[in-house]
Design a protein around this nucleic acid. Structure first.
Lengths: 230, 230
DNA sequence: AAGAAACGAGAGCACTGCTCTTGACGAACG
DNA sequence: CGTTCGTCAAGAGCAGTGCTCTCGTTTCTT
């Protein structure tokens, strides 16, 4: 039904895709700040103002790339995690971690776009929040499953107060899991992205050599803090 | 001796300081990408080209701000950590963590400059690496002291290979500490900055409410992974 | 076939970092 | 004291940016 309404809409969809493809390539080489609408237009053989027929502003083009990035990362995590045996929770966790790291290392600029410092003046629209929770949802599912099958021991203390039960937050993504376990999961989550941030943004240059092994070791430690038996 | 050589040098130093001050204010409001030499010059009542007498390029001005940021953060950590009893290692660690977080929350754009995604096209010169290790040096000292007084239990495994013994790296900053403990310290380090990154870059908006308490809880968990007795 | 909507091209505005030249001022030297 | 040399602010200008507006043309709808 949505295959080809008119020729005009087909070529419009085609051009829109070509614009985002070229923009993604530019993003990969120049970074977010170097993404130039005029350069995209130049590469397409169009005039810069024509781009505005497809994306009303540079920020809208950025938003499209951000949504694509969230989905690509989320899909990578989902695939890696779902390839593991359902009851191997530590294995699923490690697979998810490696998926995040490898995608980030392979697409550093896209990763910076979604998990780095926010682009100045850019405000993420509501369209992005649906795609943004895909990776953390997959990861919450592991914690959820592990808790339900008793693979996570109940911790001693209750943890601090103050988990906001907002849509798409941890509290909603892990129903039935006690707050203390959610807090441990949050800690492991921040450890994961802290590591990936440091590696992608160059803090490990000339410091850590065998990064994959070191990462796996750190993620095993994170799983332990989460209470996940190895 | 360096107080006042000539009047010319005095006014030059004064103007240089004024430029960095205005640039820092602009950085705080607009972010790194919005830092404009012309706007700085406008605010000083000068013409844009005059700025180039003091900073040969925009990147050099950025570098000055980055070095200042490293020093400010490092000094905050040093002060907070040194205010604790020398043998209260967990207390020193928590104090250092809170210092990092509070400085970052108070100066989000400066923090983004030094620990966020790298500014596109900007390459950090060698001048920065001296100041950059100030915070991690203070923090390594805690681990070192704790290890020497036996507050850190020797871990089971040895951890992965691949610690690069580069100048200013962890391996050099913690002499005498076994590799396995250094790896645990690296994990705690990444957990710390992972948390601060997420908070400063807005990932905790509408998710975590009482962030200071949650942070302290996460940092206690990190201290536990590090093997630090509480 | 006629009207409406979408489209690409082009000119133009305000802004950016940066370079080059010009003229003025101040400090050191003979 | 006067000259010379280095430093400085100012201005014009270049190439680039995001974005807006207008103007014919093409395409779809009625």
């Amino acid at each position: 039904m949505t295959a080809s309404r008119t020729a005009r809409e087909r070529v419009r969809a085609e051009l829109t895709r070509e614009i985002t493809d070229i923009a993604r390539r530019q993003l990969a080489t120049e970074g977010a700040g170097g993404l130039s609408l005029r350069a995209v237009a130049r590469e397409m053989g169009m005039v810069s103002s024509a781009i505005y027929r497809y994306f009303p502003s540079r920020d809208d083009l950025l938003t499209a790339l951000i949504v694509d990035g969230y989905n690509a990362l989320g899909e990578a995590v989902e695939q890696a995690e779902s390839a593991c045996p359902r009851d191997d929770f530590a294995g699923r966790w490690l697979a998810a971690c490696h998926a995040v790291r490898e995608w980030a290392v392979a697409h550093p600029h896209e990763y910076a776009l979604i998990y780095g410092s926010p682009v100045p003046g850019y405000q993420a629209p509501q369209d992005t929040i649906a795609a943004r929770v895909r990776d953390v949802a997959a990861y919450s599912r592991i914690v959820c499953d592990a808790w339900e099958s008793g693979a996570i021991a109940p911790p001693m203390d209750e943890g601090p107060e103050g988990l906001e039960p907002d849509a798409g937050s941890f509290r909603e993504l892990m129903p039935g899991v006690p707050d203390a376990v959610v807090w441990q999961a949050v800690s492991a989550w921040t450890a994961l992205y802290g590591w990936v941030n440091f590696e992608v943004f160059g803090q490990f240059n000339n410091v850590i050599e065998n990064r994959r092994a070191a990462f796996e070791h750190a993620m095993r430690l994170a799983a332990a803090t989460m209470g996940l038996a190895q």
